[in-house]
Amino acid sequence: MKRILKLERHLPAFAEGELVRAVVSMEGRSVNMLKRFGFVDPFDVGQSVLPSVHLGPAARRNAYGYAIVHRDQPMEEVIRQHSWKRMEWRGRDKVEVENVIDHKYRRYPRTYVAGEGVEFTIMVGHDGTKVIASPSYHPVEAAESLLMAANLLVEGFGAVEFLREDLMPQLNVPIKRLNWDIFPQGRVPWSQVREIIDRVTERAPASVKPVIRSRVKAIERYVPDFVAIGRAGFDGYWVFGFTKQGLYVLESRMLDNATYVLDADWEAVSRLTKAEIINSDLSVARLIHDGSWPIKLEEVLRCVLP
């Protein structure tokens, strides 16, 4: 099985009103397969993760969402930033300089739809064995979410089954979310942070990497005391925190994304899905990636300066 197109063809008959989970047994699953999905050895009950975007198209759609292109509407002008190298005379010497510039181009309008953000938790099944389970969904009212959950398991493990919610026992251990690698709070080891972000941005186009680095340096100037690097389905995202002010800046290697500034403590932020981050009341600022981005960032973070 590669993909489920129609949920009703695979869904058993459930009683009206029953909630359903997409589930796969951990029996016979290799360590590499579980790690690739996003879990961490020793795979304790309670681990919860947004599936890694490297699984395939379903995982990327779940994490990043998608765009609806409106080809029936007039084209619009948009801006994408990239680096530009040129030679410049300085006295008698000719040196190479690099600038971040706005590139304007026209395209059809598009509406961005946030990803479902389906996460999976290691739980104990009704027979005492470990299973990987989605949240519970109403099979009619939340059919799209259940279908996404099913396809994520198919993409990660090649199998899925649907179980009633009451066949899964109540989780009696704390959920340990694995979406973020967190540096100790206090003095940020910037050399390590830059090294990790450079590895994350290695997959970005050459002209984009300097743009990402310039944003990180801009945020670094405000001296955050907290850093979290996204992993699994949050790969390519990082958070810079100003814990005294309760502000957290969410940045990404995806150029079409905005920078989000969240007003909360880290416990609240770390529990949010991507869709909730984008739509949450915790977001106090959304800074579009264009030429005015540094000015807007200064307006928001001015309060953290001594």
Results as ranks from 00 to 15, higher is better:
53 V>Q: 11
252 S>A: 10
12 P>K: 13
226 F>G: 15
283 S>M: 01
293 W>K: 09
137 Y>W: 10
116 E>S: 08
129 T>S: 07
63 A>V: 07
22 A>R: 02
253 R>H: 05
147 L>C: 04
142 A>G: 05
144 E>H: 13
159 A>D: 15
46 G>A: 04
304 V>T: 11
228 A>R: 08
41 D>H: 06
184 P>E: 11
83 S>P: 04
218 A>E: 06
210 P>T: 10
123 M>F: 02
156 G>H: 05
208 V>G: 05
110 R>I: 07
265 D>S: 15
28 G>I: 10
175 I>M: 14
269 V>N: 05
72 D>H: 15
99 N>G: 08
1 M>E: 02
304 V>M: 06
192 Q>V: 04
214 S>M: 06
247 L>H: 03
186 G>H: 06
55 L>H: 03
136 S>D: 03
140 V>E: 03
168 M>S: 08
119 E>V: 04
67 A>E: 05
179 N>L: 03
67 A>S: 11
189 P>S: 14
305 L>E: 11
273 T>H: 03
92 R>S: 14
84 W>M: 15
22 A>K: 08
95 V>R: 15
257 N>E: 04
300 V>Q: 12
282 L>K: 10
67 A>I: 02
16 E>S: 15
63 A>L: 07
250 L>A: 09
291 G>M: 13
261 V>D: 00
158 G>C: 02
102 D>E: 13
71 R>N: 11
26 M>E: 02
84 W>H: 15
233 G>H: 00
189 P>Y: 05
75 M>N: 13
287 L>R: 06
143 A>E: 07
284 V>Y: 03
106 R>P: 00
16 E>L: 05
129 T>C: 06
176 K>I: 02
286 R>G: 09
66 Y>G: 03
170 Q>I: 08
291 G>T: 11
73 Q>M: 09
231 R>E: 11
284 V>M: 12
70 H>K: 15
170 Q>R: 12
287 L>Y: 02
163 L>G: 03
73 Q>H: 11
50 L>F: 00
184 P>Y: 05
168 M>Y: 01
132 I>Q: 00
202 E>K: 15
30 S>W: 02
174 P>L: 03
302 R>G: 14
114 A>P: 03
76 E>C: 06
44 D>P: 03
170 Q>A: 07
49 V>E: 09
199 R>E: 14
102 D>F: 08
33 M>F: 07
293 W>E: 12
225 D>Q: 14
164 R>F: 02
190 W>M: 05
220 E>N: 09
16 E>H: 13
277 I>S: 06
77 E>W: 10
185 Q>N: 09
285 A>W: 00
68 I>V: 14
161 E>P: 00
43 F>E: 01
229 I>Y: 08
277 I>N: 04
245 Q>I: 01
149 A>F: 01
67 A>Y: 02
110 R>Y: 07
221 R>F: 01
130 K>E: 04
22 A>V: 01
293 W>F: 12
295 I>H: 13
73 Q>F: 08
153 L>R: 01
136 S>P: 00
247 L>G: 04
22 A>P: 02
250 L>G: 09
248 Y>H: 10
154 V>I: 04
94 K>D: 05
80 R>D: 09
1 M>K: 07
190 W>H: 10
281 D>Q: 12
211 V>S: 11
96 E>V: 09
296 K>T: 12
270 S>P: 02
